[in-house]
Amino acid sequence: MRVAETVAKETLDHQERPIPVPGPGEALLRVHTVTLCGTDLHIWEDDYATPLPMVQGHEFCGVIEALPEPHTTLAVGDRVAVSPILNCGACYACSIGRTNACDRMSVYGCYDVPGALAEYVTVPVHKLFPVPDALPMELASLCEPTSIALQAVNRSRPQAGEHALVLGCGPIGLLATLYLTSLGVHVVAADTVPERVAFARRFGAADTLHVDLDREFPTAEQATLIDRNTGGFGPAIVVEATGQPSSLDNAIRLVSTAGRVVAVGISDRPVTLSMRTLPVKDIELIGSRNSQELIGEAAELLSHHPEQARALVTHRFPLTKAADAFETMRSRTELVGKVAVDLTEAAS
């Protein structure tokens, strides 16, 4: 089988390897599509905790080639999306069902386990989720990032009729917007890139805000819009999906009293908060990581919104040009959503 392995900083080695043999409880999967995220870019740039060499790829889907034994809901030939996190089952987080925050997790293509930039992988059967007929296979790898957005939104305990502010219109912010609006929540989305701001309306945002880094946010006009939408109280929910310290500061400042702020954006940069703000506003500041096996729910959401899913994937490459896929991710001259690597025979 063909494999693309990241062997050093910004260096891929294309290899031929034997098709892996499934172990007990594992299925053999022929990989169809891998989509890349910011973590993948950091690994490729050797700016992440992942030791190299590593076969990357944790957002993926494929077709079952072999099962260890007959299964009640899965069969050879089924199209499936994959939950890439392998949790330990013994730490405190696992013991309370928060497997998404396992202290000793492994992740395909990120930690310990080779990923899906290979024609075949073996996957535990319980990590496979059927792809609905209404969801095209080339979009099913989006189930993993969508599940992360679902997890973040669920952490905020949204109610129909509430108002939410989503800070950041990258893939996770857009997918969070899509999910929130599907639940009946009124969403205002904000970003520093005008093209992304406009894109958010396609995902259900009722209003959008351009964040000008040279001006105070929100501007007087933007503050009026937020007040008009929320009766002057501020949004009940703010999803911070940028990882920028200033954005988290904005989230805490703008959220309503007794509101909920979910931080799903990640960076190593420190944040300074007033010790007065959290208790006086009586708000909840909530972290969100990965998802609690929400791949199936993500597949259902995407199957009802295939147009948005298709729009999210802005670039596609065959496995032979995977290096170009990584280079495209850091482009500053064009709008880049999700970048996909196609492993089907038709790829060229």
Rank of each mutant, 00 (worst) to 15 (best):
V82F: 00
Q222M: 14
R2W: 13
A299D: 11
M329P: 09
S267Q: 07
E297Y: 07
S147E: 01
E59H: 06
Q159V: 05
I19H: 09
V255D: 03
E284F: 08
R157E: 13
R2A: 12
C169Q: 00
F60H: 12
P136C: 07
E16D: 13
C110E: 15
L165T: 03
K321W: 07
R104N: 13
A325T: 06
L178G: 13
L343M: 15
A134L: 14
A198H: 02
E138A: 07
A116C: 08
H71S: 12
G77P: 06
A322R: 12
G25Y: 13
P279N: 05
L254S: 01
R98M: 12
H304A: 10
G231F: 03
Y48T: 05
S147R: 03
A101V: 15
G89E: 09
F217Q: 11
V211Q: 03
M1V: 10
V238H: 05
Q222L: 12
T73C: 05
R253Q: 14
D212T: 00
D268Y: 09
L117Q: 15
P245N: 06
L248R: 02
M275E: 10
L167R: 01
L41Q: 05
S83Q: 04
P68L: 14
V166Q: 00
R196V: 01
C143T: 15
R332L: 07
P194E: 11
A134V: 09
L174G: 02
L225Y: 04
I43S: 02
V107L: 07
T314V: 06
M105Y: 15
I148L: 13
C102W: 09
A206H: 01
F60W: 10
V82Y: 06
D212G: 03
G184H: 12
Q159Y: 04
R201H: 06
Y179W: 11
T181Y: 04
A311Q: 04
L273V: 07
E45H: 04
T277Y: 08
V197F: 07
V166P: 10
H210K: 02
G231Q: 00
P245I: 10
L139W: 06
S331L: 02
D227P: 10
V7G: 12
V34G: 01
V82P: 05
G62Q: 05
I237G: 06
G170C: 04
M1Q: 09
V55K: 01
V166S: 01
A27W: 08
E162A: 06
E26M: 06
R196K: 06
G231I: 00
Y108K: 10
R196N: 01
A49I: 01
L178D: 09
G57K: 02
V238F: 08
A258L: 11
P218Q: 05
P306T: 07
A118I: 10
T181N: 00
I226L: 10
K338H: 11
L209I: 04
